[in-house]
Lab assay of single mutants.
Amino acid sequence: GLEHMADEEKLPPGWEKRMERSSGRVYYFNHITNASQWERPSG
């Protein structure tokens, strides 16, 4: 619901949600550090 939507907005600075086109899996990418990970970043 709306709570989940708001929660997605609160990623740490630099992080954004991305989708891997080949598999459709969602991952997280940090455009500041060029880091990427499957787990939702905390902090």
Results as ranks from 00 to 15, higher is better:
Asp7Leu: 10
Pro12Lys: 01
Met19Asp: 05
Lys10Thr: 11
Ile32Ser: 07
Met5Pro: 12
Gln37Tyr: 03
Glu3Asn: 12
Ser42Val: 12
Arg21His: 15
His4Gly: 12
His31Gln: 09
Ser36Lys: 14
Glu39Arg: 07
Tyr28Trp: 06
Tyr28Met: 00
Val26Thr: 08
Ser23Val: 03
Asp7Arg: 04
Ile32Met: 09
Arg40Ile: 06
Met19Lys: 13
Pro41Gln: 00
Glu9Lys: 08
Asn34Glu: 07
Leu2Trp: 15
Trp15Asn: 00
Gly1Leu: 10
Glu20Gln: 12
Glu20Ile: 13
Ser42Leu: 10
Val26Ile: 13
Ser23Phe: 04
Ser22Gly: 15
Met19Gln: 10
Ser42Ile: 11
Lys17Leu: 08
Ser36Gln: 11
Gln37Lys: 04
Ala6Cys: 15
Arg18Val: 08
Pro41Ile: 01
Met19Glu: 12
Pro12Arg: 01
Ile32Glu: 09
Ser36Asp: 02
Arg21Gly: 15
Glu20Lys: 04
Ser22Glu: 15
Glu16Asn: 02
Glu20Val: 08
Gly14Glu: 06
Lys17Gln: 07
Met5Tyr: 11
Arg40Lys: 11
Met5Gly: 13
Asp7Thr: 10
Pro41Asn: 01
Ser22Pro: 15
Met5Gln: 11
Glu8Phe: 06
Ala6Glu: 12
Glu20Met: 09
Ile32Tyr: 13
Gly1Lys: 11
Arg40Ser: 07
Ser22Asn: 15
Leu2Cys: 08
Asn30Asp: 03
Gly1Glu: 11
Met5Phe: 11
Glu20Thr: 06
Asn30Thr: 01
Gln37His: 03
Asn30Phe: 02
Glu39Gln: 12
Arg25Ala: 05
Asp7Ile: 10
His31Thr: 14
Glu16Gly: 03
Ile32Lys: 07
Asn30Lys: 00
Ala35Gly: 06
Ser22Phe: 15
Trp38Leu: 07
Pro12Thr: 02
Ser22Ala: 14
Arg21Ser: 15
Gly14Leu: 02
Thr33Ile: 05
His31Gly: 05
Asn34Lys: 14
Arg18Phe: 07
Lys10Glu: 14
Ala35Ile: 14
Gly1Met: 11
Glu39Gly: 06
Ala6Asn: 11
Gly1Asp: 12
Asn30Ser: 05
Ala35Tyr: 10
Pro41Leu: 01
Lys17Met: 07
Gln37Val: 06
Gln37Arg: 04
Gly43Arg: 10
Leu2Asn: 12
Val26Glu: 08
His31Phe: 13
Gly24Met: 06
Ala35Val: 15
Arg21Trp: 15
Ala6His: 12
Met5Asn: 13
Arg25Thr: 05
His31Ser: 11
Pro13Ala: 09
Arg25Val: 05
Ala6Leu: 13
Ser22Val: 15
Thr33Gly: 02
Leu11Pro: 14
Lys10Val: 12
Glu3Thr: 11
Gly43Ser: 12
Gly14Val: 01
Ser22Trp: 12
Ser22Thr: 15
Ala6Trp: 11
His4Asn: 10
Glu9Ser: 08
